[in-house]
Write a protein that binds this DNA or RNA. Structure first.
Lengths: 200, 200
DNA sequence: CGGCGGTGGTGACAGCTGTCAGCCGCGCAG
DNA sequence: CTGCGCGGCTGACAGCTGTCACCACCGCCG
């Protein structure tokens, strides 16, 4: 019997996935969480075999959750289930030691199989992503990422500088750097591209 | 027996929702579609009682699907199930004659009940949105929307002007108008706000 | 008819953006 | 120790952005 916890913020999707997985007789859903913090508490209390989690959730993201599992040396294996086929996400997920990474686009039958594979000690990585992931890698520095994130929210150089305790000239240099590295023409395109690649 | 078709592009979510709804003995899933065109064909061929659909799908969106159902006078009632609690979406959905509008955040139990309510001739609108929807309405003109959409993709005033056959000064006037109407400080914030409200 | 709103335009101005060259200080490999 | 790279900063410049005032045309409502 494979004991697992399910973390997903959208109630309807969580309920639906639960229904789907309850059809499998060798899988046992021992807990559900609608945010990262709650999921973490369940992991500590229930010590399940597997965690099935989304990435984008309030509080802790699925990636951060995976990092914690790794750092605390829990035996729980992590399977990410997400909308986003961003290479950067998979990259970070693998660094955080996750055992599975599925897209919500995948056929439903794949999920249960993936959980069994992972429980046996294997890996279940969405094949299309696997190739792409080790292609282009994030060329941005930490600072460039921070600056780009804020720029994407509509802040000006001056405002970004205040938030990061930098001079506004420095902020503009970072933006210019990022724009150049990404081969685009302005901060908006740079933000969109970096976001879409999962680098933000 | 309530006969329904399910349209949702994410395979995993579709499969999971199907599993959830198959647990209900008075509901019968007669067809599944992963895009709008396919859903439309199913509607014409199967004449189901209900259509349960996402909004954002390749090909035809759920909103466009609802409009077609309305224009062709099908007896099928439409229930939208979406991630986006944007007032503008609900507004357009109601204009298109949909009978239900649920958020994926909602608890899973609500879905089956909503389908029954709608089948009985009632409506099932997510309560939080219902209030909000008739509050603030889209203050933007068509031109302002067009310009904002392009600005959001990172185009400059000059480029937008070329695409729309306007002068770059006019484009800047529209952007300034939109920024003012939305009470924000620049095009990026304006785009984000309009997008988030479902006005784009 | 007059007025109003949407569309399209001009010119001017201040301020922001993107680019570049160059400077400083720190830490680390040679 | 010297030199290099990196993070941070500055100043200057051209070009883009946001704002404003003002003009013209159309169509529709009262």
């Amino acid at each position: 019997m494979i004991r697992f916890v399910l973390a997903e913020d959208q109630g309807l999707v969580r309920g639906a996935l639960a229904a789907l997985l309850r059809l499998e007789t060798d899988l046992q859903l021992v807990g559900e969480a609608s945010d990262g913090e709650q999921a973490w508490r369940l992991l500590r209390d229930l010590k399940p075999d597997l965690l099935v989690t989304d990435i984008e959730m309030p509080g802790l993201t699925g990636l951060e959750l995976a990092q914690r599992v790794q750092r605390h040396g829990l035996a729980t294996r992590v399977v990410i289930v997400t909308t986003f086929g961003r290479a950067g996400y998979l990259r970070r997920a693998l660094d955080a030691g996750v055992s599975g990474y599925l897209l919500k686009d995948a056929p439903a039958e794949r999920l249960a199989d993936a959980l069994r594979t992972v429980h046996r000690g294997g890996r279940a990585i969405d094949p299309e992503l696997a190739v792409e992931a080790w292609g282009e890698s994030d060329p941005l520095t930490d600072r460039e990422r921070q600056v780009l994130r804020l720029a994407g929210e509509g802040l000006g150089a001056q405002e970004i500088a205040e938030q990061l305790n930098l001079s506004h000239g420095t902020v503009r240099n970072y933006l210019s750097e990022a724009i150049g590295k990404l081969g685009v023409g302005n901060r908006i395109e740079a933000y969109r591209l970096a976001h879409q690649k999962g680098w933000l």
